[in-house]
Design a protein around this nucleic acid. Structure first.
Lengths: 256, 256
DNA sequence: GAAACCCTCG
DNA sequence: CGAGGGTTTC
């Protein structure tokens, strides 16, 4: 079973690239973030034409998440029950092939002294409570998406420059660890304990060409599933497309 | 001698099309309107690379005119002396091969009850005085560009709909006739006394595909030069380009 | 740097 | 509809 995540930064713009990637990679589930389109603008017909099912939660301009699969997507849920009044569409959950898949587009936070950082803090607290409850119900669970957190300095091209900056602060890293402590494992680090892996490169300053990025897109795997994890791959060659997303897809392959 | 006019609606966007058109058509002069770029953003180097000279008068966002030629452009002048404080870059004049070429991007006017229509009235009065003075000095003269006036109902796809509307009002047509009365002839109508010829089609509503346009781009020829006029052509196939201007080029060929 | 919005203009 | 400008977000 292959489970993938990709922040596409506008599905309108990246739709052809997503179609091509689906047909080439044939994942069992693809989790998308930053659709940046309204709920009724999702290209369901185009996906169905190619044999894919999808569930999504969209909003105009910002955020928006989707799950795409050839299999049935059941027990679909959107949003965090702990934040019932949050208008931002950042979470969609479904069960596929017996695996609970939680797709998140976590809050960016802008800067440690920004009001958006306080929102990020509240949002991660709500996510942690939600995932704890889900793990109690579903032993086979994957939490994946754009976390907007680089878990360690090994995940940052220039740790000095990013020291206690947004995505890299010790407080954000403690939130990430809180998630792992629920009974989840960082899939990429489980498969590749050392080495530099980036999933996001700033559009500005030709950072991709210079090999300078952050690892902020993650696939976290529940204890019950971790022994079945075979490999985790960052698909960097999509970043060499004509109009690339600033994020690359990441996929995890399981022997189920 | 081939003299051409083209409202390009952004030279930034249309630069490749202008280059291609110059190389295919090899005009002696090409007059451009609606450059929509600042004075120091004109692509002179690219033109010189291909062996062309140019003079231009640019401004940010709006208006802007240029004259491009393989020959020397002398006695260059910009603006109307009768409107010395007008910041809008709508006029550039030069002598090429002994012919005085006046390139104009005339005021649109928006609607008959708009303040912009009053500006159009003043601007045409100033233009008429300027052209009268130029004709006194230069017997061989061509006044060309985007006039934003369809001279007769024959130049309009739906004269009823456009009756006394902007571009087609009797007052605007009287301004156009005032120019002719200075000793100028409408080149296209001289060469083609009857028949529908359009030079502009609204982007909205697929008007080009429906064949519905206006003839508002003109080449007016001085009495001394009119007997040498061989043909006038509207180059409609540029409107079938990938990202076309809403105007087509018009060119006049002289036996000089 | 790239995307989406709303605005003005033609 | 298509262009440019200014704004916000990441």
């Amino acid at each position: 079973m292959k489970i993938a995540t990709w922040n596409v930064n506008s599905l309108n713009v990246r739709q052809p690239q997503v179609m091509e990637w689906l047909m080439n990679e044939q994942p069992d589930v693809l989790a998308l973030q930053e659709l940046k389109l309204e709920q009724d603008k999702f290209p369901l017909a185009a996906l169905q034409m190619m044999g894919w099912n999808a569930v999504w939660s969209g909003q105009k301009t910002y955020n928006g998440v989707a799950l795409i699969s050839r299999h049935e997507l059941t027990d679909v849920q959107t949003g965090l029950p702990q934040m019932p009044n949050d208008p931002q569409r950042r979470v969609i959950v479904a069960t596929v092939n017996g695996v609970r898949v939680i797709n998140v587009y976590c809050v960016n936070g802008e800067a440690l002294d920004s009001p958006k950082f306080a929102y990020k803090r509240e949002w991660f607290a709500a996510l942690t409570h939600f995932v704890r409850d889900e793990l109690a119900r579903y032993a086979d669970l994957v939490l994946l998406g754009d976390f907007n957190i680089a878990p360690t300095d090994e995940d940052v091209y220039d740790p000095k420059k990013w020291h206690e900056q947004i995505h890299c602060s010790s407080e954000e890293r403690s939130w990430f660890k809180n998630l792992l402590d629920l009974g989840l494992t960082d899939g990429l680090r489980h498969a590749n304990p050392i080495g530099k892996f980036y999933t996001w490169w700033d559009y500005r300053g030709a950072m991709f060409e210079k090999g300078l990025g952050l690892r902020i897109d993650h696939i976290l795997v529940s204890d019950n599933l971790i022994d079945k994890l075979q490999q985790v791959v960052v698909d960097t060659h999509t970043r060499a497309n004509e109009r690339p997303s600033d994020h690359a897809p990441v996929h995890a392959d399981f022997q189920i």
